[in-house]
Each structure stands twice: as structure tokens, then as C-alpha cells.
């Protein structure tokens, strides 16, 4: 079964946008998400295939609305809970 990430040949997406002199990251948190994912994989919390899978099975509206590294962070959160590393409630920063 194909998932929402399997977009090859699909029509209807917006135009391709090139960004001249694009920086590697558009915000500090994006770099942190990339490094966090690498650290968790190196520690064996999950592997790269599980990480891809976790992104690909995000709810479709969430997947489509998310930016690239927002998807990464959503997948990290899913896997941390599923692997029993943290409880879902622990993932939210305290309010106030």
C-alpha cells in the first residue's frame, strides 16, 4: 500500500521554489532536531528505517501541513513514546 510520502507522479502540488543562497537550516531548532535524531539512532533507541517509517505513518493532514524538520520532530516524539523511553505527557513543556 502506498503512503502519503509516495508522491512520485502525483499532480496538484505547488510550484517548485528555489531559494538562492539557502542556509543549511532555517532555524536553530531544525539543527537540534537533526542532531537529536542522530544521537538517538547512535544509541540504538531506534534505527533509521524505524525513523522513516514513523514519518510515513504520521496522520496524513499532519504530514502534509508539517515542514520538513517538523516531520522529523513528530517522528522522534512518536518513537520515544512507542519505545517506552518517555510517557507522552512528559513530551510537552510545562506551561506558564
Amino acid at each position: 500500500m502506498s503512503r502519503i510520502n509516495d508522491v512520485g507522479g502525483m499532480t496538484g502540488f505547488a510550484a517548485i521554489v528555489q531559494e538562492p543562497d539557502e542556509p543549511p537550516f532555517h532555524a536553530d531548532w531544525e539543527a537540534h532536531v537533526l542532531a537529536l535524531n542522530a544521537a538517538l539512532i547512535r544509541r540504538g533507541i531506534y534505527n533509521l528505517d524505524e525513523f522513516r517509517d514513523a514519518q510515513e505513518r504520521l496522520p496524513v493532514p499532519e504530514y502534509l501541513a508539517a515542514s520538513y524538520y517538523e516531520r522529523w520532530f513528530a517522528a522522534i516524539r512518536v518513537l520515544l513514546v512507542e519505545k517506552g523511553v518517555v510517557d507522552e505527557a512528559d513530551l510537552e513543556p510545562p506551561r506558564g
Binding site: 532555524a27 531548532w29 537529536l36 502534509l64 515542514s67 517538523e70 520532530f73 513530551l91 513543556p93
Partner: peptide
């Protein structure tokens, strides 16, 4: 994939994790 979003909430979320 949408554009790059305002990042204060997610930035706090990443720091927290």
C-alpha cells in the same frame, strides 16, 4: 510540505525533549 513555520513553540518543545 509547507514552508518554514514560526518556530517559538516548536523550539521550546525541542529544548524540552
Amino acid at each position: 510540505m509547507s514552508d518554514h513555520h514560526p518556530s517559538s513553540a516548536i523550539s521550546a518543545g525541542v529544548r524540552h525533549v
